[in-house]
């Protein structure tokens, strides 16, 4: 799914913020990315969602060398990737609904088809009552959930979440993680950058640890044991599947 080989990255002419990063994500895997602030987590994710190019090394995505991808082919690839941005990147002038619907509209999904999906997903992330609200009127945690909903609405093959639970309480954080796990169970490869150690402990997934731009340790935790989650994620996600 994803392979990094001796990847280095820098912003402009600045110093390398990632050095000799080598790792691999198997299709269908679920992993955490941790490390102190400024270690380069967001930068690593940027390479994966094709917002940045490496200054050296090889990044392979969906079995394609990203350095050879033509500009015109980028949209197709990016549509397979759902991203929860650390700073949300919501469209300030759009309602919650329109923000979440955007990836589908960009793909050309018809309005009546997307309406059902978006409403259902918003109900799931607990934003039913904020459906017409603009981001500026939402709390930090609500905005975060909008951005998560937008990232998963088109059922990406790869989900990259940058600190997706930074602004919500533990209960919602766990609930959101179940959403990610459900997506993962349906085949999405997931990587979550987070500082939240209790989440990492609770959800047993491999952990990549970044320190000062270098990947220091690969947590030797085994792949997850399938455990029924107590929420109705299944119902919701499968319901959407039938709808398509």
């Amino acid at each position: 799914m994803i392979r990094f080989e001796n990847v280095g990255m820098r912003y402009g002419a600045g110093p390398e913020v990632l050095r000799d990063v080598t790792f691999q994500l198997e299709p269908g895997s679920f992993s955490f990315l941790t490390g102190p602030s400024g270690a380069g987590k967001s930068s690593l994710l940027k390479l994966m969602y094709l917002a940045h190019r490496p200054s050296r090394g090889l990044v392979t995505l969906f079995d394609r060398d990203t350095s050879t991808i033509h500009r015109k082919a980028l949209p197709t690839l990016r549509r397979k990737i759902g991203v929860v941005f650390q700073d949300f990147r919501l469209m300030e002038h759009m309602s919650t609904f329109d923000n979440v619907a955007l990836p589908l509209r960009v793909k050309g999904v018809s309005e009546d088809r997307l309406k059902k999906h978006v409403t259902e997903l918003l109900a799931w992330v607990g934003l039913k009552d904020q459906i017409n609200a603009k981001p500026a009127t939402l709390s930090g945690g609500q905005q975060q959930r909008v951005s998560i909903a937008r990232a998963v609405i088109s059922r990406p093959k790869l989900l990259l979440a940058d600190e997706p639970t930074g602004n919500v309480d533990d209960e919602i954080a766990v609930r959101l993680l179940y959403l990610f796990e459900e997506l993962n169970r349906m085949g999405t490869t997931v990587m979550i950058a987070t500082h939240n150690q209790s989440l990492i402990d609770r959800f047993q997934h491999p952990v990549f640890h970044l320190e000062n731009g270098e990947l220091t340790a690969l947590d030797p935790i085994q792949p997850p044991q399938p455990e029924e989650n107590p929420f109705f994620v299944n119902e919701m996600m499968h319901g959407r599947e039938e709808g398509q």
Binding site: R78, V106, R150
Partner: peptide, 16 residues
Amino acid sequence: RRVIETLHLIGARDGY
């Protein structure tokens, strides 16, 4: 700029 960048990252084509 930022809105356009976000649209791109979401998978919007230039034509869109």
